[in-house]
Design a protein around this nucleic acid. Structure first.
Length: 749
DNA sequence: TTTTCAAACCTTTTT
DNA sequence: GGTTTGAAAA
């Protein structure tokens, strides 16, 4: 037995040393899956004499890729640099940049991010004269993306379209793809699809990669979608040396097309697959783990497994209910302060929440208390307006082929080039099938433009001058020149101070990223080039920017926390309607609720030592204050695991209806988080908020009602449960739904 | 063409 | 509640 693998436990060793044929590693949270993967790579290279470049490791985020990269480097040394460690998207970009010309695309294609997609779709909807009220670009794009994730192309979608909406979307889909191609651009989904298409149309290319990647490993396999599955299957080929690692209980990206069946039926897709379960958790205390197990147990259709640990029991899980979201934020932050005063460091703490919108209150308190924090998520750095603007300038200087980029900055700052002028240029460009910038260079030929001509001329001259300068300048000089010469920098002068400061910060951040890129090039002895820098910037996300060493509290969504761990975790907003969210409750779709429960499981298992659950009695949501009850997920945690600090008493309440019982737990008396008792309003008499819970609705069984989203329907059942009425409605269009009167806001017709 | 103001919409989660 | 979008006015 090699000494290398002796550092693993028995199961881990079994997984790391099984190298030939398909292998499914079911790795529970904190069971050391990255460790197994890295050791497996080391084993392949060290013991099986596999060349590093024959190994491919795929992850979902750049962060995970970076983490794996550094761990492999540490374990194996310089030889590891030959291993491809990459995200799905980055891998596809790498392949496509090399060979997409075989499909008739230019190898310098642009990658459109969500923002670019929306801009493009909006203009398509407009030019095709389609009702933008009925067809919102967001939902159209969502529909197209989900079609792409199921590998339904334009033609097939067209054929399958069965109603008016689908028929219109099929036309939009078609036009969208045409425009992308005209702009030499791919969206995120296309990156994967094009790679498959490349493999299908050019078997020699596929074979080349199959030869190269003799051993493939995929992390977070439970989050793969259909396209990714096909991609992996194609690459694995007949040899099938495919090792996937995942945890069906941590599948939380269904909305993005992740198909949990990929992992559940791995053994059918890859006959003869070996399955190894990793159930020993090295991360958390047993109290935390027991809570996680108790919650996830309520899901059906799981792969059977139970996490265990020989870590001690640890502290019980804390549960605190507050009057409102603000008090919740104040208390969580003051709790952190107190613990830091007692010797903890800021980086031990993470504040997690369901939606990004919840971050604001915590931020306010952290700023007020002068606590260093890092907000992860929200608006992606590369999606910020000023960053995109400057990148758009650089793109226009670089090629001018990217119409979205050109349109973005043509009138920023104001140059007197309005919509009318821009559209006429675009029209001319289309008629003569030339690029938009080219059309602008020929402005004198465009008869329909008179007034804007001089303005366009000076814009063209400015860009051309910058192009000339670009040839002789370093990239950083060019960057600075662009800010000044375009007048973009001056636009910050008449902004208010805090906003201008933030934006300028972002721009200097972008500048330093450019500097990083140049240094990187020097290390690899490449020549830094603008197109090279611009090309893959769309793939970088905020999550990748978490620095390891810095000492700050981390704020992020539960989704963002996957794959990370923290000493002390606050799961906030643990309320029915927030988490699990509205949508998953009212839809009546058990699947959706299970997805939320998996998210809860992910959240709980992030904590190593201490877990605090917080919730509020009422909370401001979309501008109105509403009453909330403790999350049903909290009710699924055994009381024995929750802290009972004398002053806190919980009580299991009897209830009639078992379909919904968030009233399961009632807190009789409450203390604030620092232990001081707080005056409490009498129980069972909630204040009347804007939506009074428990008042009888203004309709009865048999009445016709209207729902904001589901349309009209007939009330078939009304049951009084807890403090609210559970109403069953048979909707004309979407069928029977169960919902709570206070949430559903049904209106009698 | 640009500015201003009211209205709509939003809140799931992201590569 | 905050942000974005549309129409009307300047």
């Amino acid at each position: 037995m090699s000494s290398l693998l002796s550092e693993l436990n028995e199961r881990q060793r079994e997984a790391a040393s099984h190298t030939e044929g398909p292998l499914l590693i079911l790795a529970g949270a904190g069971s050391g899956k990255t460790r197994v993967l890295t050791y497996r790579m080391a084993y392949l290279i060290g013991e099986k004499d596999v060349a590093p470049w024959n190994i491919l490791a795929i992850t979902f985020t750049n962060k995970a890729a970076g983490e794996m990269r550094s761990r492999v480097d540490r374990l194996i040394g310089p030889a590891a640099s030959g291993i491809w460690v990459s995200t799905f998207h980055a891998m596809c970009v790498r392949i496509l940049r090399r060979t997409i010309d075989r499909l008739g695309f230019d190898r310098s294609f642009a990658i459109y991010d969500t923002d670019d997609q929306r801009t493009l779709m909006r203009s398509i909807i407009k030019t095709m004269n389609i009702d933008s009220k009925m067809f919102k670009e967001r939902s159209v794009l969502a529909e197209i993306s989900s079609a792409k994730n199921q590998m339904i192309g334009v033609k097939e979608y067209e054929r399958e379209a069965s109603d008016y909406r689908e028929e219109v979307i099929s036309r939009l889909y078609k036009q969208y793809q045409m425009q992308l191609e005209a702009n030499n651009a791919l969206d995120f989904d296309d990156l994967l699809l094009m790679t498959i298409r490349l493999f299908n149309t050019c078997p020699d290319v596929l074979e080349e990669y199959q030869q190269r990647f003799r051993y493939i490993m995929v992390d977070e396999y439970q989050d793969t979608n259909r396209v990714q599955f096909e991609l992996v299957r194609a690459l694995a080929g007949k040899k099938g040396n495919l090792c996937v690692v995942g945890d069906d209980d941590q599948s939380i990206y269904k909305f993005r097309g992740a198909d949990i069946r990929n992992i559940l039926s791995f053994e059918e897709s890859f006959p003869g697959a070996k399955v190894v379960k990793l159930e020993q958790n090295y991360r958390s205390t047993s109290a935390i783990l027991d809570a996680a197990n108790a919650v996830i147990r309520n899901n059906s259709g799981r792969k059977d497994k139970t996490l265990w640990t020989d870590n001690g029991e640890g502290e019980p899980i804390q549960l605190h209910q507050y009057e409102d979201g603000n008090e919740e934020a104040v208390s969580v932050v003051s709790d952190i302060r107190q613990r830091v005063a007692e010797g903890a460091s800021y980086d031990q703490f993470a504040i997690l929440y369901r939606t990004n919108a919840q971050s604001r209150l915590f931020e306010e308190q952290l700023v007020r208390r002068g606590i260093p924090y890092k907000l992860v998520g929200g608006v992606n750095f590369y999606a910020r307006r000023e960053v995109k603007d400057v990148l758009a300038y650089l793109k226009t200087i670089e090629s001018g082929r990217d119409e979205i980029a050109l349109r973005r900055i043509i009138n920023v700052p104001r140059r007197g080039i309005g919509d009318t002028t821009i559209n006429r240029i675009a029209e001319y460009a289309r008629d003569h099938s030339i690029g938009m910038f080219e059309a602008m260079e020929r402005i004198s030929d465009i008869k329909t433009i008179s007034r804007g001509k001089a303005n366009v001329d000076s814009f063209v001259l400015m860009i051309q001058k910058l192009r000339d300068q670009a040839a002789t300048m370093t990239l950083l000089e060019l960057y600075d020149t662009v800010l000044e010469a375009t007048g973009y920098r001056d636009t910050f002068d008449d902004m208010d101070d805090t906003e201008a400061e933030e934006r300028l910060d972002n721009l200097s951040e972008l500048r330093s990223k450019l500097a990083d890129y140049i240094i990187e090039c020097e290390e690899e002895e490449k020549v830094p080039s603008l197109p090279d820098f611009l090309q893959d910037v769309a793939l970088v996300t905020d999550l990748d920017l978490l620095e390891e060493e810095a000492d700050y509290v981390v704020l992020m969504t539960l989704h963002g926390a996957k794959g990370l761990e923290f000493e002390q975790v606050y799961m906030t907003g643990m309320e029915d309607g927030i988490f699990p969210g509205f949508m998953s409750i009212t839809s009546g779709d058990e699947e959706e609720l299970e997805e939320e429960r998996r998210l809860c499981y992910v959240g709980i298992t992030r904590a190593k030592r201490r877990l605090t659950l917080t919730c509020a009695r009422r909370r401001m949501l979309r501008g109105e204050t509403r009453a909330f009850r403790i999350s049903r997920f909290v009710g699924e945690i055994p009381l024995s695991l929750l802290e009972d600090r004398g002053a806190l008493r919980y009580e299991k309440r009897q209830h009639e209806s078992n379909s919904y019982d968030p009233g399961d737990i009632t807190i009789r008396q409450r203390v604030s988080i620092d232990g001081k008792p707080v005056h409490l309003q009498p129980l069972n008499k909630p204040k009347q908020f804007s939506v009074p819970a428990g008042t009888k609705p203004a309709y009865n069984i048999g009445d016709r009602v209207k729902h904001r989203k589901f349309g009209e329907g007939t009330v078939t059942e009304m049951v009084k449960g807890g403090r609210d009425y559970e109403v069953t409605v048979d909707f004309d269009t979407v069928g029977v739904k169960k919902m709570f009167a206070a949430f559903a806001k049904l209106e009698p017709i």
